[in-house]
Every structure is written in structure tokens, then in C-alpha cells.
Amino acid sequence: MSGYAQHGIEHVSASSLNLWASEPALWVMERLMKLRSLVGPAAHVGTAVEAGVEFALRHPDQDRDAALAVAHARYDEVCSDAAAREKIAGMLGQALAQLAAYGKPDVPEDSRQHRVEVQLDGVPVPCIGFTDFVFHGHGVIVDLKTSSTLPSAIKVSHARQGAVYARAFSNYSMRFAYCTPKKSAVYELENPADHLAALANIARRLDRFLALSKDPQELAAIVCPDFDSFYWSEPQARANGLRIYGF
């Protein structure tokens, strides 16, 4: 029996595998012990900006203020951090400056995102994901990333995520739009096959790890949390980590 089957895991995702690779202790706590951490304001800003961009692209007749209102409304539903909220307008403007020329994104009839599912080599469960924006007319997929600083290249964890989309939409150009309140850039993914192979490698290691024991507590006893990592910045996550790992 595979490790995944042993723990009732029916699929993986790039974000889950990236978390396992970066902070296995947090992965065990969240995914096996079901102690999910709260999402911080930065993630809510990203979701809000994406909602604003989606609205603007799908309603080119509406002005930017309408898109900003959509983004603010989405943010206000889930977060009250005023300082983070102030970043939305700048990021939205930067994102639209990059993406407006792409035109209206294509969406499935029954959803606002394309669900993709790929098989990773040697992994007994599928890897799923949801694309931000697909432009069939251009043969381009764009994933929006909001950030406090503009990276000079696609981050490795994002490359793995993009590799899943690129496999699902073969022959499409996979791009990442990075947006800060003042800067933005769109980069094209390179070497998607290598990054997909890396993701498969990570998934196989996770499978072997899970096969060690049916008991999450026993698996937790193998890994160590790194509380310096931003993954543990949320206070409740740190409290849960302290309780689970004892230090």
C-alpha cells in the first residue's frame, strides 16, 4: 500500500508538495493532523488583487475603480488589516498594466478557473491545480503572484506549480505575472519538464515518508519545525507547532 493510500490522500497539489519540501513539520501538522493555519493578510491581498484583475479583464467596459471596488470587497470579507489593504490598489494597477493587453481570459462554463490534473511519474495519486488565467487565443496561461518585492526570476516553487499547468496545457506558454505595489514583470517559465520531474521526485519522497507509519504522531516525531521560516509566522500555527513538536 502506498503512503498516500495509507493516509487516505487521493491527490496532491503543487502547493502541498512545495510545503512538504520546505516545511515538512508544518505539512504534517496541517495535512495529517488537520490543524490548518490561518491565512495571513498577504495571501488575502493576493486573492483580492486576483479578483480585481479577473473582473477588469472580463469587463473591459468598466473602469479601474470598479475593479478596485471588487478587490476591496473581496478583501474586506476576510481580513481587516488596513496596512495590507492599502497595497491592493497599487498591485491591481501594476497587474492590469501587464495583463490588460491579453484581453478577456477564457473560463470554463461551470467555474471561474480551469481545474487541471496531471499524473506525476511514479506517484500513485494525481496532481491537481487551478489556473488563474487562460488565454486560448494566445496560447498563454498566466498565474498572478503578488509580492512585497519583485523577484528577478520565477521562484522555484512557482516553477513547479507552473510546470503542472504547462503539462496540462501542452504547447501553451506558461507565464507568471509578479506584482508589487510599484513594480511588475511577466516572466515565461523555462524548463517545465525539469520542474515537473522535481515535483514528481518530491511527491515520491512524500509517499515513502507516509508509508513509514499510519500514525501521524509517529510521523511528526521524525520532523522538526523551523520557526524562523515565514511558513510559521501565523501565531496560531506557531502555537500549534509548539504543542505538537514540544519546542
Binding site: L99, A101, H138, I154, V156, A159, V186, Y187, D194
Partner: peptide, 12 residues
């Protein structure tokens, strides 16, 4: 590791 991509691409 394989490069991830740092080439800025213009919109289509």
C-alpha cells in the same frame, strides 16, 4: 537546478 525563467515577456 534548472533555470525557472527570468525573461520578461511582453503581452501578446
Amino acid at each position: 537546478p534548472a533555470a525557472t525563467g527570468s525573461t520578461v515577456v511582453p503581452p501578446p
